[in-house]
């Protein structure tokens, strides 16, 4: 996962220069320090070898604008590690995705800072209008106002590591090679998001194809699908359950995008999904068990009937 994060990090540095690199390094260093000190204070075993602290430290700044003060990004990292990851069971057992929780926390604390994206190459001096904000305001977006190629290469205002769609697709290809099962979460999530975007366009004029592209390319959608939805602790194991989990998160995400408080609510959708999924999985298991029981009973009765005959 950390290797996959390297690609968007490189692009963030390419577009925003040393400011992006500095922010990412500060957050990663803070994450390691917080993990060590937090584990000591909370008396829980620490294992830095799983690199999850570094992952949280890198993922949260990549979801933020480059202009954000470092203390806000570090607060998000601290929340993810100290309030979610360590006290609720660590990398492989925490019931919520720590990076999503960290981002959600800072977005309710400082929404103005978290959702103000500067134009690439201005060093954070000039604020731009992100695609997610345009969509949330129902602003008319047409290919002649924004270059589609710019959107794909991330040359638009947006989160520094999540704007470049081509690079994220590269990360997805890497995931396909290294962890093909996880790609089911991603594909089902993006598929349902695309379907909902096409069916219920938010852009002026209701252009379905354009709506689909804008929704998928805006905000943190692809980034969250790749890095938050595939979290080993919260993601289901079986393939069809992974698909269901991805689809459910997509529905919640699109509802939140349309009716929610913030222009980008995918992290809240991931948290809600983390909370709902265990209950759904329980019902699913129970239903399957009953179905299996009935099937067995039916086969036994059939056999008895055959033997009687």
């Amino acid at each position: 996962m950390l290797v996959m994060l390297a690609l968007p990090a490189v692009m963030a540095c390419y577009y925003h220069g040393l400011a992006a690199l500095r922010l990412i390094l500060i957050c990663m260093a803070s994450a390691v320090l917080l993990e060590i000190s937090g584990a000591f204070l909370m008396r829980c075993p620490r294992d830095l070898r799983d690199l999850s602290a570094l992952f949280i430290g890198a993922a949260i700044p990549l979801m933020l604008p480059v202009s954000i003060p470092a203390r806000i990004a570090v607060t998000g990292v601290a929340f993810g590690i100290l309030a979610v990851k360590l006290p609720l069971g660590g990398t492989f057992s925490a019931p919520f995705v720590p990076a999503a929780a960290g981002f959600a926390f800072i977005s309710i604390c400082w929404p103005a800072a978290v959702f103000s994206y500067p134009l690439a190459g201005t060093g954070g001096a000039v604020e731009g209008e992100s695609l997610a904000r345009m969509l949330s305001q129902g602003t008319s977006i047409r290919p002649n106002t924004i270059n589609v190629f710019d959107i794909l290469i991330g040359n638009v205002p947006g989160p520094m590591g999540a704007a470049c769609i081509i690079v994220l697709l590269g990360s997805m290809a890497f995931m396909l090679l290294r962890n093909p099962r996880a790609i089911v979460n991603v594909l089902s999530f993006l598929g349902v998001c695309a379907t909902m975007a096409a069916l219920f366009p938010r852009i002026y004029g209701g252009l379905r194809l354009l709506s689909l592209m804008m929704e998928l390319c805006s905000g943190l959608l692809v980034f969250a699908a790749l890095f938050l939805l595939t979290d080993p602790a919260t993601s289901p194991k079986k393939l069809y359950r992974r698909a269901m989990y991805g689809a459910m998160t997509a529905v919640i995400c699109m509802l939140l995008r349309r009716f929610g408080r913030f222009e980008e609510s995918v992290c809240f959708a991931v948290l809600i999904s983390n909370a709902i999924w265990p209950q759904i999985e329980r019902w699913l298991k129970r239903a399957l068990k009953e179905h299996e029981k009935k099937r067995k009973e039916a086969s036994v009765t059939d056999k008895e009937a055959v033997s009687d005959a």
Partner: peptide, 14 residues
């Protein structure tokens, strides 16, 4: 803490 996270998640709707 778990309930706090649920509350945080629902804040996305507020």
């Amino acid at each position: 803490l778990y309930t706090a996270m649920l509350s945080l998640a629902f804040t996305g709707f507020s």
